[in-house]
Design a protein around this nucleic acid. Sequence first.
DNA 1: TGAGTAGTGGGGACTGGTGGGGAACCAGCA
DNA 2: TGCTGGTTCCCCACCAGTCCCCACTACTCA
Lengths: 158, 158
Amino acid sequence: MGNQQAPESEGRSEQLETYFAGEFSHALDEKGRLAVPAKFRARFKEGAVVTRWMNECLAVFPTSEWESINAEIRKRPRTDRTVQTFVHFLVGGAHEADLDAQGRIGIPAHLREYAGLGGDAIVIGANDRLELWQPDRWHARLAQVEGSIGDSLSDLGI
Amino acid sequence: MGNQQAPESEGRSEQLETYFAGEFSHALDEKGRLAVPAKFRARFKEGAVVTRWMNECLAVFPTSEWESINAEIRKRPRTDRTVQTFVHFLVGGAHEADLDAQGRIGIPAHLREYAGLGGDAIVIGANDRLELWQPDRWHARLAQVEGSIGDSLSDLGI
DNA sequence: TGAGTAGTGGGGACTGGTGGGGAACCAGCA
DNA sequence: TGCTGGTTCCCCACCAGTCCCCACTACTCA
């Protein structure tokens, strides 16, 4: 990515963010819609897939990203136990949607319920995906992560 | 509709969904009919096959998909124990049907009974098939899956 | 301080899901 | 063989949820 050559005459060329990063606090409205941070919207031009994710949060993938993950799964035997787990949890939970004209995405009721979302939500950039967290769960997760970050970094050799 | 005769005006920008995904809650009516989610109906133009499936749910395959699975089986020796299991469980349970004009499919009584279906049912998109679940069974299955999703993802190298 | 962008809220049209009525088909019995 | 009862299938109509669009407010940047 990265090395952009001729700067666009546009001035601030809002070029495509390659990886998601950062933390945002947005509100879900009455209808279960959530605004995607403006800088990330271009990545979702082709559509977005919302699904269940680990630690009781939701993940939002650009469609292409999701497809490449799922394509990997479809190569494997459908009766494999691990594959079934994946299919039920992730594919079964997957909701495909486009952003509306305001850059919002609708979150189906059963996913909101799974992640405990309502009112405010925390949007986390997590490289290949966005994660949506119920605020309390996010803070708990952060506290948990802080305790083990030292070990993790040395495990990873960073 | 159709005041202009574009040949495949059927098309719509929303073209055929390639794989099934997502979760839907639909009701079985008095007559044992279940509405197939509208976005998937095109995949069942050639017909659908409903049959028993793992974890006491039902599976709905597009006819072509079912055919390719069953063709695979027919190549194998009919005395093979696994083949016999497959034939009794899946082929024996198979019910071929078309969607009605409202996009509903009729589920025979013996299959409804097997899956405990009546009143509400959960429809799960599972890549190559739809799965029909009795709500309580589905929630139990989800709870079970949730516990092992982390391991599954790392097993799959995701 | 003003202009533009981002986030939020809400109203209206429309599609999809559900229920039910009626016709057609089938089988059993007289 | 004709009549009757039941089941299945088809079609119409209502209702609710979803999507699309418009408007308002707050914040940021120049």
